[in-house]
Design a protein around this nucleic acid. Sequence first.
DNA 1: TATAAACCCGACTAAAATAGTCAAGTATCT
DNA 2: AGATACTTGACTATTTTAGTCGGGTTTATA
Lengths: 141, 141
Amino acid sequence: MKLTSKGRYAVMALADLARFNNINPVSLRDISLRQGISLDYLEQIFFKLRKKEIVQSVRGNQGGYVLNKKAKEIKLTNIFDAVDEKVKTVQCKKESKKSCNGKSTKCLTHNLWDELENHINDFFEKKSLEDLIKDNSERRI
Amino acid sequence: MKLTSKGRYAVMALADLARFNNINPVSLRDISLRQGISLDYLEQIFFKLRKKEIVQSVRGNQGGYVLNKKAKEIKLTNIFDAVDEKVKTVQCKKESKKSCNGKSTKCLTHNLWDELENHINDFFEKKSLEDLIKDNSERRI
DNA sequence: TATAAACCCGACTAAAATAGTCAAGTATCT
DNA sequence: AGATACTTGACTATTTTAGTCGGGTTTATA
């Protein structure tokens, strides 16, 4: 299971983007300043987000990024997936099925990890970017 | 968020222990062989489990470990806690509340991580060791 | 057309975490 | 007495993380 800064930054940056997503693209420089994330690191992250078509880039002066879909349609799963944050608790597929299939207690816990994985993925599957910014503006201001 | 081999090993080892928990204590050597976990590493893990009173040790020849409570009463939370696997998605408490409390979008995602944390902890809070071995024996054999 | 803003992309790296190993014990059963 | 098994601390190789660095290319605008 991984869930590290990269994933968090990606979500933070996209939430920021969703908020300031007007006519004009949002530059990474602005996001970097607002969210306190290194510009260079943001570039790495957005490179991946672009490849997965979550954002679109606008090159040149006054350029930046825009969301490629509606905030409602961007689920957290998509984001984590894009930046390679795999919610993977155990890689049982590698260990050939012979050594696993019901053999003693070794695999006793595998169902658990599967279950957990589904549980977490469900959570991420249901949450969209829109939920994030909506939740937040409801609670404050 | 961390959820690594140490946590998995701890759960596997305890599930093994719960299964073979008869009158006699179970030696780490046996668990090591059955689960394919290095004996030295198991010792480290059980040192922690003992300190948190999840297991009891029986020293000397024919010694080993026994569960210190009923399998039903040992929740996964307790296990992860004992081996320092913290389900912590973000440490927002450090960043003083001034810098966080509703200031722009920086904290926009904090509710999310809180929610996720609760979600996962809930899952672990509900699952006991007994659930594990019961689930498993139901499905096979 | 010059220039600055902004994206593009690969390579490198310090620090931390992980998953152990190693060594030298101590306790207890037979 | 001897074997088995727990106890404990220190050490370490490997991997991952969270970046940095450096050199591009593209495009708006003055």
